[in-house]
């Protein structure tokens, strides 16, 4: 069965078309755009909150987007076990919306950072990551100014206990060390999942490394994993 991805378009989303292109044109799954003023989610199997600067992020990143009409439907969808995937600004929105715990601070350098990073996959038992096999790490670009993940001790303990830390910044060989954590995230966290395992947020951009033409394909492992595993 071909899964259907719904990509939400907020005012200021700018990775919406990138996600659409990868899913539809490169990986050959179904994809539709979901307008922020709508509430109907068109029978999608996965909802993607894409990267960008929703509402300009002039307040806190993601702080306004969470109040969009479409977010009510995203809440309901997630509540019923639907799969929600927040990438970069999408992750920030999930945090503001309370669908994932913790918050996002400015990068420790106080600068926007765009570069390729290596991620170790701490939890390969999620629908998002089951397909990432036989590799120590995946190489994925980051591009953000506010990617410094923070949570209090209790939250971090709970994330650890429930195996919710999915991606960590690491060396090429998978060592998760401070030196490879460019934004200052606590515990080198690059991506987390909710307890139920249906809502994932990550700062790096898998949609930017899913094409042979760009010479980077690790991101497609995540989209393919989703496509393969959500119906199981």
């Amino acid at each position: 069965m071909k899964p259907k991805f719904g990509i939400v378009v907020f005012p200021g989303s700018n990775c919406d078309h990138d996600a659409y292109y990868v899913i539809k044109k490169i990986l050959n799954y179904d994809a539709v755009f979901l307008w922020h003023k709508d509430t109907y989610i068109q029978n999608c199997d996965v909802i993607i909150l894409p990267g960008g600067f929703s509402y300009g992020d002039y307040l806190r990143t993601g702080a306004i987007a969470r109040f969009s009409h479409i977010m009510d439907s995203v809440f309901n969808f997630a509540e019923k076990g639907g799969y929600v995937f927040g990438i970069c600004n999408g992750f920030q929105i999930l945090l503001e919306a309370g669908l994932l715990p913790g918050c996002m601070l400015k990068n420790k350098s106080l600068q926007f950072i765009c570069k390729d990073v290596y991620l170790s996959v701490r939890n390969k038992d999620t629908v998002f990551t089951k397909g990432i096999e036989n590799v120590k790490t995946i190489k994925v670009p980051i591009a953000h100014g506010d990617g410094n993940y923070f949570a209090d001790k209790d939250t971090l303990n709970s994330l650890e206990e429930n195996n919710q830390i999915v991606f960590q910044y690491s060396s090429k060989d998978g060592e998760s060390l401070e030196a490879f954590n460019t934004n200052g995230s606590v515990m080198n966290i690059a991506g987390i999942i909710n307890k139920r395992g249906n809502v994932l947020g990550m700062m790096p951009h898998p949609e930017r490394c899913s094409s042979k033409i760009l010479g980077k394909t690790d991101g497609s492992l995540i989209f393919n994993s989703l496509a393969k595993n959500i119906f199981n």
């Binding site: 990868v22 670009p141 930017r208 760009l214």
Partner: peptide
Amino acid sequence: VFEQYDSTVRTNTIVGPGCDAAVIH
């Protein structure tokens, strides 16, 4: 300088900043 710029959005950047010229698919 160029790490402060998003050079990979739109997923066309074959050769980004730092080389002789950029190449955009």
